[in-house]
């Protein structure tokens, strides 16, 4: 019972500590997802599909300020019949609305799915076949840069030295305020979930490590439990014998 009280007290202390430092803790959780860096002059600026209302404006800004002469669009899957709602079509419209000429925009071949991993594959093909030595800036939202960097590293491997990620701010929330609204909470929490999923889904070593850890924990638990049980069983007859002996003596 004393042990149980200690455990409850320890848990309460941990929870109280977390509550006291929750703000810096939550900010650190948010900032951990942002691996973007300051931009440098490159050959192409790539717009990752999704959230065009922020990312495309950053791409346009970088082209306008001379960081690259050309913007690259990765086509997204079309849901429904309305082609004007496709993400890359909106992206192109935004770039043009910001004064980027049509001949400054390259569109990569179409893809089968919209995942960040398949965007990386598409860009890998572009680098391999057409522009082996070029340098690129990839623009995505701040909370999406860690997963993107990870996915791109799996696909592009050594070519990652040619790529830098630049973070586009998100509308309505940031790493400092993400938990204030359901929108921000959803964005950041789901990003952590997706990061974990990607790390298991697209990396064999991680899968082996994960399964190995689980197997180790389960096996260790089983061995400890069995040993304890065996020791108890061994002690029981000895205790019984000593009790009988004491009874006889009395």
């Amino acid at each position: 019972m004393r042990r149980f009280r200690k455990l409850v007290l320890f848990t309460l202390l941990i929870v109280a500590g977390i509550i006291v430092i929750r703000r810096p803790l939550l900010i650190a959780v948010g900032r951990h997802l942002d691996t973007g860096s300051s931009p440098h002059a490159v050959d192409f600026v790539v717009l990752l599909p999704g959230h065009e209302a922020t990312r495309a404006f950053v791409v346009a800004g970088l082209v306008k300020k001379g960081y690259a002469p050309t913007a690259v669009l990765i086509p997204s899957k079309l849901y429904g019949q309305d082609a004007s709602k496709a993400q890359h079509v909106i992206g192109r419209d935004i770039l043009q609305s910001q004064g980027i000429a049509g001949d400054q925009i390259i569109e990569l071949p179409n893809l089968h799915d919209d995942s960040t991993f398949s965007n990386a594959e598409s860009l890998g093909t572009f680098l391999e076949k057409q522009h082996a030595d070029c340098r690129l800036i990839v623009v995505t939202n701040d909370y999406h840069t860690r997963r993107s960097t990870w996915a791109f590293r799996q696909v592009l491997k050594d070519r990652m030295t040619q790529i830098e990620f630049v973070s586009a701010p998100a509308d309505y929330h940031s790493a400092e305020t993400w938990w204030h609204s359901p929108r921000g909470t959803e964005a950041y929490l789901s990003e952590y979930f997706k990061l974990g999923y990607y790390m298991l889904r697209y990396n064999r070593q991680n899968r082996i490590l994960f399964l190995g850890t689980i197997t180790f924990v389960v096996m260790s638990g089983a061995v400890v439990t069995l040993r304890r049980r065996k020791r108890k069983q061994e002690q029981r007859p000895a205790n019984l014998a000593s009790a009988t002996e004491q009874g006889h003596t009395a």
């Binding site: 002059a41 404006f57 800004g61 359901p182």
Partner: peptide
């Protein structure tokens, strides 16, 4: 909850320095 303000793209562009190779 409290939804924050929309990102100001014009302000961002103003403070973005021109490219250095």
């Amino acid at each position: 909850g409290a939804t924050g303000p929309r990102w100001d793209e014009a302000e961002w562009l103003d403070v973005l320095p021109t490219a250095e190779r």
